[in-house]
Design a protein around this nucleic acid. Structure first.
Length: 424
RNA sequence: GUGAGCGUAGCUCAGCUGGUAGAGCGCCAGACUGUGGAUCUGGACGUCGCGGGUUCGAAUCCCGUCGCUCACCCCA
């Protein structure tokens, strides 16, 4: 009889952002643009689709992102394409491809948009997620690092009022000093690794730095005794870190030096950081980033220092949610018409009000007064304009303030001004 | 990739040890024929995720499967 067809549905780990939640997203994005603008950052948009080799070369072939989390497929001309898992590589690619370095000076760029990683979804983690990011190209000054961190701080804690925020700071050294540290770490692990969890035993071989990131309680005492990268930094890296710390102190931005902070992308050098919030659940990283002085060169451009960060917008919205409420129909004007012959007058008025940028709702189905006002109420309208035979005849429409219930007749010709002055 | 929990009305959920489906909210209508948010009355809406098994009988028990959620992992 009624054989129901299987309804279509969305792909695992991706989701629709419905109008109700989009308000929050819009507010977050507006604040973001405003902040970036004050620091004279300019927006850049790069494609979602890139050649796979871009990420293999920049992010690193042995990272989790590249080795198991990318949406990669072969195009019909046999080219391997990938849905971007992050945007720094793309921004650098664009910087090189369009020879922006020839313009001279420092490039300060920001972007926002969807990224894709094929992970198992959970709270704050999706397969299509959104990042807001910034990249500064052409400055190796520690003052730049401090300003980049200042932007994060201003946006997240000051502008968006997110609570329980921690800024974790570390230096992962450079190509000169990091290998020395990794060697020392490997050696130290040889002695103790049989007492660590199975994951750590594996990491000790494949990626010793990852051991530092282990969260297993029983492993902590042993990990605490491992060599610290800060003790192995070369002179230049140590000075750089000191200057960044000074910059943060001067700005009165709280941070925590975290020698165990390791980033999941291979291109980072020197300054690395992460911002977490206790309001988020297990996936508590709100933003992360660092310096990547060798990346532009690695991707075929001129030697150019860089630093940047990426904020997880989904998580930012999640954390922002607590403090946010906004009525749907702010300043909405609802037009309640009563008889067929008043519809024309209603739609004329609607068009006129809209021309002066007022938000107007006009429903075309005929309704009784009672239902019409109930609709206005549900839409959370600020005013209802009542137009019926009496109003048409007198040329004065009833304007009702929905909050107070008060209403008064207003001259047809003066309605625009009347409403304008009351809805701001 | 691994583990745990959960899939019943638009939403939130109840339904004990098997007897064939309920509440609240929401929605629609009326009480109130040109005045909303309160109240009352009535109404519509369910392949009980899907498939199979056990049984006279399954939302309930068993197996499988799909989906969602959270956690591990990893990261933003």
């Amino acid at each position: 009889m009624s054989q129901k067809t299987e309804p279509v549905r969305s792909v695992k780990g991706v989701r629709d952002l419905l109008p109700k939640e989009m308000q929050l997203w819009q507010r977050v994005e507006e604040a973001t643009r405003a902040v970036f603008s004050t620091y004279n950052f300019q927006e850049i948009r790069t494609p979602v689709l890139e050649y796979t080799s871009l990420f293999a070369r920049s992010v690193g072939p042995d990272t989790d992102i590249v080795s198991k989390e990318m949406f990669t497929f072969e195009d019909s001309d046999r080219e391997s394409l990938t849905l971007r898992p992050e945007a720094t590589a793309s921004v650098i690619r664009a910087y090189i491809e369009h020879s922006l370095y020839n313009e001279g000076g420092i490039h300060k760029l920001f972007y926002m948009g969807p990224m894709f990683r094929r992970e198992r979804p959970q709270k704050g983690r999706f397969r299509q997620f959104y990042q807001i990011g910034a990249e500064v190209l052409g400055s190796m000054e520690p003052g730049t690092d401090a300003e980049v961190l200042e932007i994060l701080h201003v946006l997240i804690t000051e502008r968006l009022g997110i609570r329980e925020v921690n800024l974790l700071l570390n230096s992962v050294g450079c190509s000169e000093c990091r290998p020395r540290y990794v060697a020392a770490l490997r050696q130290a692990l040889e002695g103790v690794k049989q007492n660590l969890c199975v994951d750590c035993q594996r990491r000790a071989e494949s990626n010793p730095l990852r051991v530092l990131d282990c969260k297993v309680e029983a492993d902590q005492p042993l990990i605490g005794k491992l060599p610290r990268i800060l003790d192995y930094l070369c002179e230049a890296c140590r000075l750089h870190l000191d200057e960044v710390k000074k910059g943060l102190n001067q700005r009165k931005i709280n941070y925590e030096i975290t020698p165990r902070l390791v980033r999941g992308l291979d291109y980072y050098v020197r300054t690395t950081f992460e911002m977490t919030s206790g309001t988020l659940g297990a996936q508590n990283a709100l933003a992360g980033g660092g310096r990547y002085d060798g990346l532009v060169e690695l991707l075929g451009g001129p030697r150019t220092p860089g630093i940047g960060f990426a904020i997880g917008e989904d998580r930012l919205v999640l954390a922002h949610q607590s403090a946010a409420t906004q009525e749907a129909g702010a300043n909405l004007i609802y037009i309640a018409w009563l008889e067929d012959n008043s519809l024309a007058a209603a739609s004329d008025l609607a068009r006129e009000l809209r021309q002066s940028n007022q938000r107007v709702e006009l429903v075309y189905s005929p309704m009784k007064m009672k239902k019409s006002l109930a609709t206005a109420n549900r839409l959370n309208a600020r005013f209802a304009v009542i137009i019926g035979p009496d109003e048409i005849e007198t040329g004065r429409y009833q304007v009702k303030d929905m909050a107070s219930g008060q209403q008064e007749p207003v001259d047809r010709t003066g309605i625009g001004v009347y409403l304008q002055s009351r809805t701001g």
